[in-house]
Design a protein around this nucleic acid. Sequence first.
DNA 1: TTTTATTTGTCCGTATGTATT
DNA 2: CAATACATACGGACAAATAAA
Lengths: 251, 251
Amino acid sequence: MTGTKQAGIDRTSGVALWRQIADDIRVAIGAGEFREAGKLPGEMALAERFGVNRHTVRAAISALQNEGIVKAKAGRGTEILSDLRLKMPISRRTRFSTGLGGQARRPETAYIAAGEAAASDEVAAALAIAPGSLCVTLESLGLADGIPVSLAFHYFPAARFAGIAEHFRRERSVTRSFAAMGLADYVRVSTDISARHADEYERDWLRLTPGGIVLEALAVNADLEGVPVQYSRTRFSAGRVSLHVGTDGEL
Amino acid sequence: MTGTKQAGIDRTSGVALWRQIADDIRVAIGAGEFREAGKLPGEMALAERFGVNRHTVRAAISALQNEGIVKAKAGRGTEILSDLRLKMPISRRTRFSTGLGGQARRPETAYIAAGEAAASDEVAAALAIAPGSLCVTLESLGLADGIPVSLAFHYFPAARFAGIAEHFRRERSVTRSFAAMGLADYVRVSTDISARHADEYERDWLRLTPGGIVLEALAVNADLEGVPVQYSRTRFSAGRVSLHVGTDGEL
DNA sequence: TTTTATTTGTCCGTATGTATT
DNA sequence: CAATACATACGGACAAATAAA
């Protein structure tokens, strides 16, 4: 099926050639295709490979430079800067800071906003409360070494966690905020994972370029009696994070 | 330009507006946004929503018609034909066919290819065998109602599962192939999930458009003694599938 | 049945972006 | 940095199909 035509380039798909080629090169870098050389093949070689003009390849490389993935130097070639991904564990004891702790990086959580909202059907079902019940909302940004990796929107039942936003503002941690309100422990009940293109708001906070991808995780946490205490929608920068599900044991 | 910019549409991303809008509408359909009406809002309403000209919306709808998702009729509106969005469970007992079975859809597995390969470091580590050991490889396509949803590449240690490809070719099921070779049961040990743009090969098999997204799951299955029996790399069509991780119980 | 409003389908022209030579 | 060809996006006008008054 892949056959004769030059490596998968479609000219009437609504996606500019330079963007298709940039995406292809990004995937190839992630797959480790150029890891040995540490740099991309020359512009002429790439133009040949994709069956396009050298100018088009230059536009693609320029886009990858803006993303901070490669760095082109006259006479030297195009160096590959980073193809690393953080591994975020998903288990019964999923927590942001400890999840990234083992990877020799400085994890950090930033406060974005807090508020109140009536529970939509979706939120109400997840938290096992009546639709329309009041929820405390909290928005936060997760960073590793100063680079944003996740953007989270949390819902807590207001009846039980009325003042949690103030705690979070000081503590910068959901776990410690729960603890300050008398909830010593909690577990992850379920996680729903999907992927899509980032919208403008997500691109802004996660510093993604147009066409960037987010992994969206819808998660429910519950106390040890199984009563839901938190519903959150976390969007991970797909280029910087993978999710690791260990189905055999705890973290 | 009609006025203020609208939800997540970017005019300098190398992706045509009509394609961005088509992707947005496809996701909205999958989220059930128009399920009540059974059809899309009018072209004018959508043009307003996305802040573009009516013709641009028409181009997007035309693309969705070609995908077989909607059907436009003069005077009637644009009917939604399919809102396929599958939820694939990831748990200790993860299997493709049973995973989709509960969703009242016809699951199917197609055989693509089989072969042999020496284990790379990555594969060897996952299967707990020596690097360079021989593996049986198997490639398969998962479909739901005839629509491709997953593309999988499997590795089995050849020392133990030498003839498994022939079994799979007849049985069209990894579970039944294992059973035919005397392995009655196995469990999922770990799953690593990431997201990225589909490459040409994946776009081809999964019938994705350029810029399409895949959810890639690297999974290890083991027998009940904990000895790894299978390592697989499954790429799900992100627009058609989400992954559900239940961390509390079995499937 | 006729009328009217609504919605999609098709045509025109113009400006800008993309890709090649 | 041309010149050229084509795709994209916009704006408007009108035709054709449908549903409801």
